[in-house]
């Protein structure tokens, strides 16, 4: 009996240690990146044009491209994913076709991003001739977002209690009216959380964009042309560390690292925590 108690104590201690390690690794990564990168950040760095050879280049166009490609890809992928998610949550029965769609969504979610990048290269650049640039990058990135958003939509819709739908249908509303006026508004907090998490992940995506959005930027800052070259922050970080020739590449990489960390912190904490609280208030659920 005694030894079982001691085992229990040891196991509990080990579990606390593991939790401390998990939080510690994360915290040290975040703090390290911010510690190295924050001193680099200046208005000049954030808005300046990059330089190929000399030190002191900025990341202005890359920052712009990151957000531009992110927004475009969300605009492309969200309506489709919303539709598919609603179909799976509200309409799909238990038949083979639904099974096939679910299997496809799961498969799409596991396709490595470099493979999606090569696929985007074949389709958007070689077949459709969009060229390496913002549009090709955004379209390919959409392929990465869609399966995640489908799952997020389906899960948020499933948290809405069935009696909401029954009440609405009993009042004579059609199925679509019920979904649009009752189910979706109630699923909104979950949807918003899911969308922000997906966006945060897409923001740092690199492998998919190297061969579709490219590793160069437009000459002018804030170029909304969708065919312009579309190097993003994350791609630039990889590029300067791997291939770049600038002497201050470690500084640039540190600065970009800090910018990316700040962005994901904003996406993850500032946007999703209010969503979680809202969700708790609205549904009264305890998880």
């Amino acid at each position: 009996m005694m030894s079982a108690r001691i085992c229990d104590k040891i196991a509990t201690g080990a579990a606390w240690l593991a939790a401390a390690a998990i939080l510690g690794i994360l915290a040290s990564f975040l703090i390290y990146m911010l510690y190295k990168g924050l001193p680099v950040l200046s208005w000049q760095f954030i808005t300046g044009m990059p330089s190929d050879m000399r030190a002191g280049g900025g990341v202005g166009p890359e920052l712009f491209n990151s957000f531009y490609i992110l927004v475009l890809s969300m605009v492309i992928s969200f309506p489709v994913a919303l539709g598919a998610g609603i179909y799976l949550a509200e309409y799909a029965g238990r038949d083979r076709l639904t099974d096939l769609i679910r299997l496809s969504t799961e498969m799409l979610a596991t396709v490595p991003s470099i493979v999606l990048g090569l696929f985007g290269m074949i389709i958007f650049i070689n077949y459709l001739g969009f060229g390496i640039g913002i549009l090709s990058g955004a379209l390919t990135l959409s392929l990465l977002n869609i399966p995640v958003l489908v799952r997020v939509t389906e899960e948020s819709l499933r948290t809405v209690p069935a009696y909401y739908r029954e009440a609405s249908l009993a009042l004579g509303a059609t199925k679509w009216q019920t979904i649009w006026r009752v189910v979706l508004p109630n699923a909104l907090p979950g949807l918003i959380t899911g969308i922000t998490l997906t966006a945060g992940r897409a923001m740092g995506e690199t492998a998919i964009l190297i061969f579709t959005a490219g590793t160069t930027v437009s000459r002018q800052l804030g170029d909304f042309d969708v065919f312009a070259a579309g190097e993003t922050l994350a791609v630039h970080l990889w590029y300067v560390m791997g291939i770049g020739l600038v002497p201050d590449r470690a500084d640039i990489a540190n600065g970009i690292g800090a910018l990316l960390i700040i962005t994901i912190l904003v996406f993850n904490l500032a946007f999703t925590i209010p969503g979680r609280i809202l969700q708790k208030k609205m549904t009264g659920s305890r998880n």
């Binding site: 994360l26 992940r201 740092g204 994350a234 970080l237 990889w238 960390i261 994901i264």
Partner: peptide, 9 residues
């Protein structure tokens, strides 16, 4: 957050 940290970072 672990998921959100970009793989280049």
């Amino acid at each position: 957050l672990y998921v959100a940290i970009p793989s280049v970072v």
